[in-house]
Design a protein around this nucleic acid. Sequence first.
DNA 1: ATAAACCATGGACCATTGTCAATTGTTTTA
DNA 2: TAAAACAATTGACAATGGTCCATGGTTTAT
Lengths: 123, 123
Amino acid sequence: MRIGELAKRADVSRDTIRFYERHGLISSSPSEVTSNSYRDYPDSTLEVLSMIREAQNAGFSIADLTFFLSEIGTGSGDPDAVEAFLNNKIAEVEESIARASSFLSLLKQTRDSLDAEEDESNL
Amino acid sequence: MRIGELAKRADVSRDTIRFYERHGLISSSPSEVTSNSYRDYPDSTLEVLSMIREAQNAGFSIADLTFFLSEIGTGSGDPDAVEAFLNNKIAEVEESIARASSFLSLLKQTRDSLDAEEDESNL
DNA sequence: ATAAACCATGGACCATTGTCAATTGTTTTA
DNA sequence: TAAAACAATTGACAATGGTCCATGGTTTAT
């Protein structure tokens, strides 16, 4: 599919798609029609884009993703390095989830005590 | 305490502390010694700094934190706006945790299939 | 009392993650 | 077939979250 359709379906901008492609997160092929310079993106790019969002949300940088996706994609590279990378990242993400949960509790507690105050003043 | 000690204890740079203070996340008072321009930070700043880290990890921006901390600190402002802000943020953080957990599964699954490949080739 | 360590201020600078605009070419549609 | 919509490329611009540096003053340690 062409970049415009991909952008619409994945809900990211064309520029973002090009940005990701420049950084090796996704890839495309020249269109079958050789008379233009349009690129063709496989359907699977949709899932990759969705995964990129999840990964970023979990704290992955573009550089992390470049490494992860290229390793996963090609299977080349030092398997031990990939394993070490994954173990590191798994630990980081677990840690991050734990921290976020703790912060979430604080937010809820804050809201609840705010509610209590409200009720207090509405007697 | 003075900025250097705070920086060391909280494990952030002095510049970061000043940056946060400029943005209203923390505050200090002039030192008791009036002959200098040194600032004095209360011990509680340590917890605030630690909370800032948790909040950032959970997706809060500096602007979010500025709002949250000032509201929590002063109790002034529109309580409904604060409540709405909190409800929004709580939903966002919950969503983010769910996504991160899903991504974590992918990472683990990737590691496991990598391990399986390894074992495969080591028969 | 002097050197080393610390502090404040201001502004420049930086990496990351995009976004926008200009130009030029291609496709689709009315 | 002409206008509107879409695409590629290049390079500038922007927001966020800091970091660094120069300068000049203050404190602490020797």
